[in-house]
Design a protein around this nucleic acid. Structure first.
Length: 359
DNA sequence: AAAATTTGACCTAG
DNA sequence: CTAGGTCAAATTTT
């Protein structure tokens, strides 16, 4: 009950923070890569900030017990965002299953919310031999493969493993580059609504090699925890984020960009500016924003459903500590209502936090 | 046995 | 009709 929801918040929060961390690392990598486009970095920055915003929100919410977490989040947006987006269930395949009578209704509903989901492409190249490196921290299940006209390699389709359990409609497509077999273009569609931001089971990263699935030269002797999945980007792995969701959204990212990391701005300013930002709340629960969503009554499943895959995972200690200490040094804890007790230790005894002044 | 992948059929937009 | 995307049964992997 109480404990349950609490831990739900904690999980979400931690998930967000971790994601932000990972993204930050990607950004760093991207920055160090000679060929990083500003678009690319901007995109990453935006995502990072999003994560932190959400985390902050969660903190806020957990501070004020009145509001029921999610609802609160959904309502928070005062008047700024959701101008052009808020595109819930834009899924493409709801045709087959019930095309009897529901279809009609569904269609009318769909018209309303038909917009498109986030969509971005990144190019990943593993120039060394590190395949399976592309782990984005999510669990994907392959559901199809298609030969594409003119492309030498087939395109594979993945969707979130938790699609059914948590109605997470995120999907991605992976296409190997024609000439450079080392480069994969990964197109992400939709946002993850599942509770597995990046922490979850050790992802057996094996995106797209149907031709040669490298056996496992694995060593399961890692004394520590498994770790090393997503972010352990080998230095020669290039991630190239490219597009985007063609919208003006990217035009003016944020006002608090560069500052936010080293030392976020102080309290109120930060919070208010984060509300000014846009569309994030819209992804939190599409269904909340558009009741029309229909059949699914199971978005945001009850806490009970999420097992405790919580966070006993793999954050590379070194990195984590790095970031934490960085924050630490900046000393001003920006969050006003920061009484949140994040007992990571309880959740995960092995958690690498040695940082004394953690938070 | 359960979960994930393969793969050809099926569906829809253009 | 074609190409791209998805389904779902069969198959493989865990």
């Amino acid at each position: 009950m109480d404990t349950a929801s609490k831990s739900w918040e904690q999980k979400s929060l931690i998930g967000e923070i971790i994601e932000g961390m990972e993204l930050a690392q990607q950004l760093r990598l991207s920055l160090s890569t000679t060929s990083s486009s500003s678009e690319n970095t901007e995109f990453l920055v935006q995502r990072i900030l999003t994560s932190y915003e959400k985390a902050l929100l969660l903190l806020q919410l957990s501070g004020s017990p009145q509001t029921s977490n999610v609802d609160a989040i959904a309502n928070v947006p005062p008047e700024s965002r959701m101008s052009a987006n808020s595109s819930p269930r834009g899924d493409d395949y709801n045709h087959r299953s019930f095309k009897d009578q529901q279809e009609l209704q569904d269609v009318s509903k769909k018209r309303k919310i038909m917009a498109k989901w986030t969509d971005h492409v990144i190019r990943v190249s593993s120039e060394n031999g590190i395949e399976g490196s592309h782990e984005d921290g999510h669990n994907w299940r392959k559901y199809g493969q298609k030969d594409i006209l003119g492309a030498k390699h087939p395109r594979s389709y993945y969707r979130c493993t938790f699609r059914n359990t948590q109605s997470c409609w995120a999907t991605k497509q992976v296409q190997r580059s024609d000439e450079d077999p080392t480069i994969f273009e990964i197109t992400y569609k939709g946002k993850h609504t599942c509770s597995h931001g990046s922490n979850s089971v050790p992802p057996p990263p094996s995106p797209e090699q149907q031709e040669k699935k490298r056996p496992k030269h694995e060593n399961m002797s890692q004394p520590q925890q498994s770790q090393g999945n997503q972010m352990s980007f080998p230095t020669n792995l290039r991630v190239d984020t490219e597009n985007l969701e063609g919208r003006e959204k990217m035009a003016s990212p944020f006002s608090f960009t560069s500052t936010s990391f080293g030392c976020m701005m102080s309290g109120d300013d930060f919070l208010s500016s984060m509300f000014d930002n846009d569309n994030f709340f819209s992804n939190i629960s599409p269904s909340l924003l558009s009741p029309a969503a229909g059949e699914s009554n199971y978005y945001l499943e009850p806490p009970s459903q999420m097992r405790n895959i919580a966070l006993n995972e793999q954050l590379s200690e070194s990195d984590l500590t790095e970031i934490l200490s960085a924050n630490n040094s900046s000393t001003n804890s920006p969050i006003p209502a920061m009484d949140f007790t994040l007992d990571l230790v309880e959740i995960n005894p092995n958690f690498p936090f040695d940082t004394p002044g953690f938070f």
